[in-house]
Amino acid sequence: MSDVREALMVGRGSTGKPVARPLSPHLQVYRLPLTVILSITHRITGVGLAIGTLVLVWWLIAAASSDAAYALVSWFLRTPVGYLLLFGWSAALWYHFCNGLRHLGWDFGHGFELSQSRASNRMVLIGTVLFTVLTWIIGLAAQ
């Protein structure tokens, strides 16, 4: 056995005798295709956005409560941590938005060919970067 890949390819035949054979694609030895990485990213950004709604709710409650409460949330969102969170959520939102459009296309039966998936991979990534950068250019210019 020369490396970990071979160690992971030990299975058992129908007689119970150990045989060396490939098991299912294993996370340690299988290089994930971009489509797979983008698929799990959709879920990760979804959970991240769910956490982000807490700040939106905080902002709305503060705005409906008092000047002091609103000043506190405004101050927090202008700290470096606040800006980092806002940047992360804006990128996550645009990613989830672009990849969500792709999912809706798939739901209607479009774009299942490998070449089409590769093209839509690129479109999702380019769209995310474009919309995020655009959001921040407009957002910072409005300040």
Binding site: D67, Y70, L77, S90, L93, F97, G100, G139, A142, Q143
Partner: peptide, 19 residues
């Protein structure tokens, strides 16, 4: 889809406003 685009535009507009 439309609501999220509108929301981002709104937040940009309101983010620098007083209460």
């Amino acid at each position: 889809i439309p609501l999220a685009v509108w929301f981002v535009a709104t937040i940009i507009q309101l983010s620098h406003q007083p209460r």
